[in-house]
């Protein structure tokens, strides 16, 4: 399997606090890689650095062998690297349909000149986008919400919309930050199915932060465990569950000590 994303000795410090402290990891092309770890392990910071929201203190990020360290998010977008947020982001004053139609940026109507002159071509583009947006909403089983303002959606529906955004283009790698958090079971299954289908049918590579072990077990292979800014372990979900270092990081050493004592 080829590697699509490689993170090399990445550091990100906030003052004296080392949120990411020398993380090195690889994400295989076509995989659904899970990223787990206790709160404060540096998972989201790692995402932020890889996706260009924060510059790294040191270290490199490669995509398909090319150095993408520090590229701004809109350039990474055009390279095919997308992400979603832990707390769902949306354009609150726009409808769901319009939210999706904002993707992709840099359409030809986006220059001041074309906005007034090239109306025909833009209208054509917009029609194609509209069709696609409706398909995506259909796929996510929320087509009844298409004319609803995104700001009025529930938390779970906003998460779906976020996932929908990544479906508007042919992404290569999608980073999902707790896409399942705060989402009920039924909706979670919808999201899980969507991720699987995107992975199988359209060849998306996913890397997802998640706390729900069942959800991870159902989707992810391999799973990477982070703790204190470093990568602690990597392997299948079963390997991870039986890894001593992982149990220690999650539950502390107390439990194990008691076990050995008895």
């Amino acid at each position: 399997m080829t590697t699509v994303i490689r993170v090399e000795d990445l550091h990100r410090h906030f003052g004296g606090f080392h949120a990411v402290d020398g993380a090195t990891l690889e994400i295989a092309d076509g995989s659904i890689t899970g990223l787990v770890g206790p709160n404060g392990a540096g998972k989201t910071t790692l995402f932020n650095v890889v996706a260009g929201a924060l510059p790294p203190t040191s270290g490199r990020v490669f995509m398909d062998g090319e150095d993408i360290t520090g590229l701004p998010p809109h350039e990474l977008f055009h390279e095919g690297l997308l992400r979603t947020f832990q707390i769902a982001h949306e354009f609150p004053s726009m409808t769901c349909r319009e939210n999706l139609m904002m993707v992709p940026g840099s359409q030809s109507g986006e220059t001041l000149w074309n906005a007034w002159i090239g109306r025909g071509r833009i209208a054509q583009e917009e029609r194609a986008l509209l069709k696609k947006a409706d398909e995506v909403l259909d796929f996510l089983t929320v087509s009844h919400l298409k004319d609803e303002k995104a700001g009025n959606l529930s938390g779970g529906q906003k998460k779906l919309l976020e996932l929908g955004r990544t479906m508007m283009v042919d992404a290569k790698v999608v980073f999902l930050d707790e896409v399942g958090a705060g989402v009920n079971r039924t909706l979670l299954n919808t999201i899980g199915d969507a991720i699987k289908r995107l992975n199988e049918e359209r060849g998306y590579t996913f890397c997802m932060i998640e706390h729900d072990m069942d959800f991870i077990g159902r989707l992810c292979d391999p799973v990477i465990v982070m703790a204190e800014g470093k990568v602690l372990a990597e392997g299948s979900i079963d390997q991870i569950k039986s890894n001593d270092a992982v149990i220690e990081a999650y539950l502390g050493t107390g439990l194990k000590n008691k076990e050995t004592a008895s």
């Binding site: 996706a51 929201a53 701004p72 998010p73 809109h74 977008f77 055009h78 997308l82 992400r83 947020f85 982001h89 949306e90 354009f91 609150p92 004053s93 726009m94 319009e98 139609m101 904002m102 993707v103 992709p104 940026g105 840099s106 359409q107 030809s108 109507g109 986006e110 220059t111 001041l112 074309n114 906005a115 007034w116 833009i122 917009e126 955004r165 283009v169």
Partner: peptide, 24 residues
């Protein structure tokens, strides 16, 4: 217009606009 919409999007949520590939 598409330009106007991307301006509104940028005003609504800058991070998300960047992630939609809008050139700031």
């Amino acid at each position: 217009t598409r330009t106007g919409k991307s301006m509104r999007a940028y005003s609504d949520n800058e991070d998300l606009a960047l992630l939609s590939g809008i050139n700031p």
